[in-house]
Design a protein around this nucleic acid. Structure first.
Lengths: 254, 254
DNA sequence: ATAATTCAACATAAATTATGTTATTTTGTT
DNA sequence: AACAAAATAACATAATTTATGTTGAATTAT
C-alpha cells in the first residue's frame, strides 16, 4: 500500500472512529511512527483532521459533514455511477449548470465527452478541469471563494445566475427528508436555488444514504426536480413515499 | 541546464528567430535529438510553437502578441520587478482588483505577503493561486473563460464589477501610444474599464517596450491612472511627453 | 528509391519523494 | 522539579518518478 492509499485509509478509519492513536496506525500499516506523523501533519495541513497528542481526531461537530476535501474521499464509486447516469441526460449542444460539491465535480470532469457544450458553474474543481478544453464554452459564475465547498458563492454568484439560462441544471444535495432536499449552508442553498430558477430542467443528485436526513436549510421540494438520481435504493418507506408523490427516481447501476 | 530552462531558451530563441532547426537545438544544448523532439512535442502540445519537419516555427501572425502562454515566458525579470513596485502600494486590509494577464499573475502571486486582503479578479492564474489561502478573501468575477487570456470576460464579469468596489485596481496593458493605453481585445478592455470605474485608485502596469505601440481598442487615457509603473525608462520623447502632461511614472528597479 | 526524419519502445541515469533511524526538544504527569 | 511519552528535526537510505539516451522500425520528402 502506497502513501496516498494509506492516507485515504486513515481518513476512512477516522470518519468512522472519530479518533485514532498514532501507534495503532503505525502498527496497522506496518510503517514507522514517523511516517504516520508525516501523514497526520499533511492531512492536518489539508484541513482533514486534527492532530492531538498521541494520535488524531476528526470533529464532526454539530454538522454531519465537514470539509469538502473529506467528502471527496467518500463513496467515490457511487459518485462515478451517478455521474454516468447524469451524463445520459446531456446532449451535445446543450447549456448545462453544475453546482458545487464533489459529486458535481465528478460529473463535470466527464462533460467533455458530450462536447460541444456550454457549462455554467460555481464549482472550482469543474472550472479547473474544463478551462481551455476545445469545444467547451465555460462560464464561471464568480463569487466569494469558499474553501469549505471549493466553490464560489454570494451575491456575485446569484446576480450572474439571474442573467443566465440553461437547458439543464445538476443539483447535488447532502440531505433529503420527506419530500424535500436540505443543505447545511445558506449561501450554497441560494446558489442552488438560483440555478434551479435559471434552468429549463433540474436534476437532483443524492446519495442513497442521504435520504431521511434533514439539514438546517430547506433547499427545494423534490417535486421541483424533473429527475432524481441516486446510487442505490433507499429504504422501503422512503421509496414508497417518493413513489406515492408521483416522483421518478433513477438508480445508477454499474 | 535543466529541462525547463532549456525549453524556456528554445522559446526565447524562437520568439526572436521565428524558426529553428532540430539538429541546431540538439547541438546548442548538448542533448540528443530525441530530447529535443520531446521538448518540441510538449511545447507544441502547450500551444507554444508548431513542429515542422526538421525543426519548429512560431507564427507571430498579424497581432504582435499571441497566446498568453508565450507571454508568460517573456520578460519574467521585468515582471518580477514591476510586481515588487506594485506591491509597495498595497496595505493590509485593502481590497484590490487584479486584471488578466501574466504580469498581473506575477503580482497576484505575491499578494499574500500583504494579508489580510480582499482580492477581486478575473485572472484564472490569480484565482488558482489565491484560493484557500488564510486571511485572503478571494472574489472571482466569473465570466466566459478565455483560453487566450487565461481569464474570465463578458457581461457576467462586467455585471459583477458594477456591484463591487475596491481601493486599488492594477491594470496591465500591452500597448501605450501617446498619452493613451490600448489593447487588442475588446472584451478585455471592457473588463479593465469596469475595474477602473469600480476602484478608488488605479495603477497602470506597462512594460517599457510597449510604449509607442498602439493597438486596436482604446483602453484609457493615461491621466485616468493614479500611478504608472514600468520596468525601464522609455525613450526620451515618450518620457518628455508623459512628464509634460504632469504624469508620474515609477520605474521598478532591482 | 533512398536518405533524412520521426516515432515507438526499451534501458539507463538523474532527480525527487517517501520512509526509516537517531538524537534532541517539547509536553504532560506526578 | 523529575520523569516518561511524544513530537520534532536532521540526516541517511530506499523507492519511485522523471528525464534522457539508444536502437530500430515506420514515415516522409525529394
Amino acid at each position: 500500500m502506497k502513501r496516498d492509499g494509506r492516507r485515504q485509509a486513515i481518513m476512512d478509519f477516522l470518519i468512522e472512529a472519530r479518533a485514532v492513536g498514532l501507534d495503532d496506525l503505525a502498527d496497522r500499516f506496518g510503517v514507522s511512527k514517523m511516517t504516520i506523523h508525516r501523514d497526520l501533519d499533511d492531512l492536518e495541513q489539508a484541513g482533514l483532521l486534527r492532530k492531538v497528542r498521541g494520535g488524531a481526531t476528526i470533529e464532526t461537530g454539530t454538522r454531519f459533514e465537514s470539509d469538502f476535501r473529506i467528502r471527496e474521499l467518500q463513496d467515490a464509486d457511487a459518485k462515478t455511477r451517478m455521474a454516468a447516469a447524469a451524463l445520459d441526460l446531456v446532449e451535445p449542444g446543450m447549456t448545462v449548470m453544475i453546482n458545487d460539491g464533489s459529486m458535481a465535480a465528478v460529473l463535470g470532469a466527464r462533460l467533455p465527452e458530450k462536447a460541444p457544450l456550454t457549462v455554467i458553474t460555481n464549482n472550482a474543481a469543474v472550472i479547473d478541469r474544463l478551462k481551455g478544453l476545445p469545444r467547451m464554452t465555460l462560464i464561471a459564475l464568480g463569487g466569494e471563494y469558499s474553501a469549505k465547498f471549493n466553490g464560489f458563492f454570494g451575491v456575485v454568484t446569484e446576480t450572474a445566475l439571474s442573467r443566465l439560462r440553461a437547458d439543464l441544471a445538476f443539483i447535488s444535495t447532502p440531505a433529503v427528508a420527506g419530500l424535500q432536499a436540505f443543505h447545511m449552508d445558506d449561501a450554497a442553498v441560494q446558489a442552488k436555488r438560483a440555478m434551479i430558477g435559471a434552468a429549463e430542467r433540474s436534476v437532483l443528485l443524492v446519495n442513497h444514504r442521504r435520504f431521511g436526513r434533514p439539514a438546517l436549510h430547506l433547499l427545494a421540494d423534490l417535486a421541483e426536480f424533473d429527475a432524481i438520481i441516486t446510487d442505490a435504493s433507499p429504504s422501503v418507506e422512503i421509496r414508497d413515499a417518493i413513489a406515492g408523490a408521483g416522483l421518478q427516481v433513477t438508480i445508477a447501476k454499474d
